[in-house]
Design a protein around this nucleic acid. Sequence first.
DNA 1: GTCTATAGGCAGATAGAC
DNA 2: GTCTATCTGCCTATAGAC
Lengths: 208, 208
Amino acid sequence: MSEPRRIDAAERILDTAQQLAQTCGFNGFSYADIALQLGVTKASLHYHFPSKAELGRALIARYRERFVEALAAIDHRGGKATGKLRSYVKLYHEVMHLDRMCLCGMFAAEYATLPPAMQEELRRFFDANELWLSGVLERGRSAREIAFRDPPRERARVLVGTLEGAMLLARAYGDDKRFQCVARHLLAELTPAPPAPPPAASRTAPPS
Amino acid sequence: MSEPRRIDAAERILDTAQQLAQTCGFNGFSYADIALQLGVTKASLHYHFPSKAELGRALIARYRERFVEALAAIDHRGGKATGKLRSYVKLYHEVMHLDRMCLCGMFAAEYATLPPAMQEELRRFFDANELWLSGVLERGRSAREIAFRDPPRERARVLVGTLEGAMLLARAYGDDKRFQCVARHLLAELTPAPPAPPPAASRTAPPS
DNA sequence: GTCTATAGGCAGATAGAC
DNA sequence: GTCTATCTGCCTATAGAC
């Protein structure tokens, strides 16, 4: 009762700004756009977020926090590395299914024009992603659930980069399949032989 | 002599606009930025490109034409599919090495805010890329120079998406290695066993 | 073709009433 | 906290002299 988790004004502003940013980019929307969509004035937005730079920083911070929470939830559910990676890909797919780009992928494109505070926050997002993925990959390989040769950190970067790129193009073509096709390929790559057990691993056989 | 291929004003404008667009995005630069860099006035830019939409369209068109020419040059040099793919990746790497994003990858992020003429031109760029890659992949597989299971068209999309995404992140981190690491992985994937000739193609053997 | 000058609009941001 | 009113500056674009 005392904290009814009511959606306060700042949250509603962030919601609208995020949707606009994911669609149009940080340089592609204005306070006027948010105000119009919320039915308030530009001045009231400045009360909550004095500058657009501060609004942008808050956008990334919240996005990252929510993402990290989602990753913790995946861990909490347990299961194999393959399942976790599938869940990870699903996070991206859900975003894209709303005809949006990943907020941070979008901002990465505009990186050079962003205020320094936003640039730092942005890197924190990708760092968190890589860290989580590295862990899943490494433990999954140890448990023989997945297979790959390169260092987990590098492979994590391949995954993030590939998913962001796939979203970028899928959205431009308005075609979910372009994303799914890449995502499927990415997961299949890590599980060399799902039905038939041993393909033909002669000298690359892992130590028993 | 009659056509000394002098760099006319329109070309110089496009050069500057392209560099700005690849760094800041279409919504991230203005006529004033171009004018300042070239030492001319904004008004003179409008003589060559009446509207920014027309400038943007011309930017993509020229970028695509040059890219297609580069692909034709790769074909003309001949060689194996692996070499052609390496050359293709090199085209991306050269762009990134100038601390720029691929013009069309950048515009893909801003897709929703672009004038229709630019959206169409943009898709033509990616279509041309996919078409060329599909051909190289298909012929390379027939010649046993590379190996992959999915349809060539799909694999072409994986390549384009992955390279664009890798550029996006590498540029945000100002780190070439992030791109190279993904690129290396992408090529290695297509050549499963470089030293040992036949991996173990039993039932997936192509007709002789 | 390039210039000066300027139009008309929208951007982010602030002051002060309620 | 939200409003009206306003400021300043930059944006794309145009008119017309040279």
